[in-house]
Every structure is written in structure tokens, then in C-alpha cells.
Design a protein around this nucleic acid. Structure first.
Lengths: 239, 239
DNA sequence: CGCGGTGTTGAGACCTGTCAAGACGTGTGG
DNA sequence: CCACACGTCTTGACAGGTCTCAACACCGCG
């Protein structure tokens, strides 16, 4: 059920049997959502967090002008709103992009978990700091990189994050976002995303069809993106 | 010494005498830095965090192209790299913009503190999540807002953050960044920042001279910025 | 078979970037 | 006290990336 989550945790360091048991005990309930639903609305008081079991979620901000900005993407194994555990309300919505299965984790269970397992407290704190690192990388990308590098960077990041949970095969993975949604991530318009994707295809860097993204030339894509995966902290180091 | 830090903490909820004492005990040493120094270099292993007592710091990323992007600004009372406590190395440099006085906080003292005061653990975890919220707001700003709103938003954010620590008088505060550095925050060039500032001045929204920023028409600036301070969680709520 | 969402294309406008030069101003050394 | 130097701010002309608007093509699904 939460194997992807455990895989992600273990990729940073050992998780004992007892800890694993405790983590499994976090889940109070599992709920299913359709695509394009709002899972958590900005501002509402929270007493649970959401552990994504399967599907794709995003954090999105609606602007006054009617535009949307996606601030982070979440895949299986991610806690989508663990920061809500301390903040108690979010500054953004959490929405589904696909059918999604989500484990509900009541905050009081997290209370108990981190009390019993200080090591897990550090791991979960770490994981919210990792979200911040991802935000920072997006700031850099959106502020400074041209459209092609920007998309390339997103693809490299997802490649790395999905690989950890075993969802990449031959540098291919399913990528369910529409070009419109991709634009909302990258700070571009869907028209420009469309043209940029054509460009990336023409240069034989990627293939993207039927919701599947194939990276055809990873070294070249990585160079175009100026992608350095160290901010994802994927190497094994005990915390 | 760390009054600004305590003021910031207290603005979110009560901090007991004992807790205050413990927080003061975090400081192992105080160091001074000149302007434009690198305080922490990206990637180097960390065993301390830096609590800014006075001055201005920033988190900056150097790009391959030679450009720089500033990812967050820090003012008195901020922990500049508390996320380093869990991550153990940073994905960015921490640099000074002005003369700065910084308290050195060894990680093992934080270990002890959060063990003794679970409430403070939550507060400090919260504060790193707050940094993430600020990152998110920057993503939105840089991705979607035109140059004038973008600068306006930065000024509103700083106004709110500095007010908490008593550094705003009559909607004025010292703002020591050069236009070049401002550009590195906003994802613009210094030339464009210059022209945009002239525009904001001409519209009588701000005055900026001699390193002092005066907000002349806060409601108008806030509206231009589409600024909603709730992401800063400045209202009093026990955590 | 038709419909709605998604992807594609073109032309033109606009915001921001680039390059280059000059003005200002503040601190330093003679 | 002046002269100079260096960083910062300012300005102009032009280039270029991205956006806007609008139309059309495609495709999966009911």
C-alpha cells in the first residue's frame, strides 16, 4: 500500500522494522479521488495530512487574474501536505491531476509517531525541507532558464523522483499532465509549451505521447536543463 | 541579542520563560561578517546553523551561465539555514549583503533543545515550513506577475516581516540591496529593475533612496502586488 | 457520429533583455 | 581640499523570447 513511501524513506537511510510498523499505523483511512478534484482547499483548518498512494497531485495557487500556478508536483509515496502538520492550514490548494488513491494520516498519529521515534521525526522534518529545496529549484528555473531548459529540468526532476519509487523503465515513465498543466508548472503559456515540446522532440531529446514521457538522450537533456540532482538528496546517508 | 528572534517566535504563540532560556542557550558563539561574504558554501557539510542577529543575508544559487538567483532574503531574527539541521548540507550559498552579526548554533544543541521542549521542535519545524511557503510565493510571483507587481510583492513581504521585529517606522525601513541584487531576487535584469522602480516612484507608491524604502501608498502597493500576507502566518495562534 | 477537451499553427504585440555609454556619488589617496 | 576611481544608477536603441488571440486539427468517448 505505502510501499512507494517506504522506498522513498529507505532511499535516505535505514528504517527499522518497528519504524516501518509504526509508519504503516499512520494510515487511518484510504480515499479515492477522480481527476481534477480539489483534495484540500487553501486556508481550511487541517487535522490530517495526505499520503499519496497512487496518482498525481499538485499544489496550486489561483491568482486574482484567473491564472493558476502549480508550485509542486507529487507522485506516489509523497506526503502532499505534511507541512500542514505544523502550519495547520495551507496557502494553496492540493488538487488531483489523475485518479488518485490517498491515505489519510491524522495529525495526532504523527504526534505519537514522532514522540516514539525521534529518528522518524527527523526524517519527516527532512522531507518537508526537501519540498523547500524543490521549491528553490523551481524558483531558479522559472526565474532564469529559458523555456526549453525549464521543461527539460522538470523532466529530469521527475525522472529522478520516479526512479526512486521504481516507476521508470528505460528512461520512460507515465506523465499524465496536459500541456496546459505543464505550462502552469513552468510559468509559461500552453501555446509556448506546445512549441517548446515540438522543439525538444525535433532535437530528439524526448518523446511525449499517450501520456508517456520517454527521455531519448538523458545526458543531453540534463545538460540543457543544467540539472544537478543533489538538491533531491537521493544518495543514501543516515539521518 | 536574539530579541528579534524571540519576537518572531512570540508572534506565533507563547514562549515560556524556560523555553526562552533554552533558546538563548543555543548560541555558542557570535561572529561578524562584512558585506558580500559567503557565510556558508553550497554543499559543504554542516554541523551548525546560523541565527541572524543583525544585517541582511540571502540564499543564492550560481548558475552555469554566470547568472545568480537569490532564493530568499533573511533579516534579523531569522534562522538562515535551519533546514541545514536536517539536510546536513545546502543546495545554495548563504551570503551577506551588509555587515552582519550571526549567532552560531551547533546542531547538537538543537538536538537537546527539541528533545527537552517538543513545543519548540514544532515551532522550529514550523519555521522551516514557513520558509517553504515564502519560496512558493516567490515561485508564483516570478512565474506569473509582471515586473512592477513582482517588486511590489517583495516590498510588501519585507514590510510585513520587518514589522514583526519592530524595524518598520511609518511604513519605512532600511533596504540595503542594490538594484542588481533586487534583480537577482526578482528574476529580472538590473536595467529593468531600474526602469520599474522609476515607474513605481512616478506612481507615488514608494520612495527608495539612501538605502531606505518608504511605502507611500500601502493599499495601492498591496493591490498592485496581489499581496495576501496569510502565507506568512503572522497572526497569533498557539502551535 | 458528434462533442469536448487537448494539441497545433500563424501573425502580431509586448514585455523584458542586451549592449553600451554616461551620470552620479561616495570614499580614498595625494 | 581636490582628484580620481569604483561601484551604482540611469538612459537609449534595438533584439528577442514569450504572450495573445484566433482558428483549426485531432482524438477518445459517449
Amino acid at each position: 500500500m505505502i510501499e512507494a513511501h517506504l522506498a522513498k524513506m529507505r532511499c535516505r537511510g535505514p528504517v527499522s522494522e518497528a519504524e516501518e510498523e509504526a509508519i504503516r499505523g499512520l494510515v487511518a483511512d484510504v480515499r479515492s479521488f477522480g481527476p481534477d478534484e480539489i483534495v484540500i482547499r487553501a486556508g481550511e483548518p487541517l487535522s490530517n495530512s495526505m499520503l499519496l498512494i497512487d496518482g498525481w497531485l499538485g499544489r496550486v495557487r489561483d491568482l486574482e487574474s484567473g491564472q493558476r500556478q502549480i508550485t509542486e508536483l507529487h507522485v506516489a509515496g509523497d506526503f502532499a501536505d505534511l507541512h500542514g502538520y505544523t502550519l495547520k492550514r495551507l496557502d494553496h490548494h492540493v488538487v488531483t491531476f489523475t485518479h488518485s488513491k490517498i491515505a489519510i494520516v491524522p495529525h495526532d498519529r504523527i504526534d505519537r509517531l514522532i514522540q516514539d521515534f525521534p529518528h522518524l521525526m527527523r526524517l519527516y522534518w527532512f522531507s518537508t525541507n526537501l519540498d523547500a529545496a524543490i521549491h528553490r529549484e523551481w524558483v531558479v528555473s522559472i526565474a532564469r532558464r529559458p523555456a526549453d531548459s525549464r521543461l527539460a529540468h522538470m523532466f529530469c526532476e521527475l525522472h529522478a523522483r520516479l526512479a526512486v519509487i521504481g516507476r521508470v523503465r528505460d528512461d520512460s515513465f507515465t506523465f499524465p499532465l496536459t500541456q496546459e498543466e505543464l505550462a502552469e508548472c513552468a510559468g509559461l503559456t500552453s501555446v509556448h509549451v506546445n512549441r517548446t515540446l515540438q522543439d525538444l522532440r525535433a532535437r530528439e531529446l524526448i518523446r511525449l505521447q499517450h501520456r508517456t514521457l520517454s527521455i531519448l538522450d538523458y545526458p543531453a537533456l540534463r545538460q540543457l536543463a543544467d540539472f544537478d540532482p543533489s538538491y533531491l538528496h537521493l544518495e543514501k546517508k543516515p539521518i
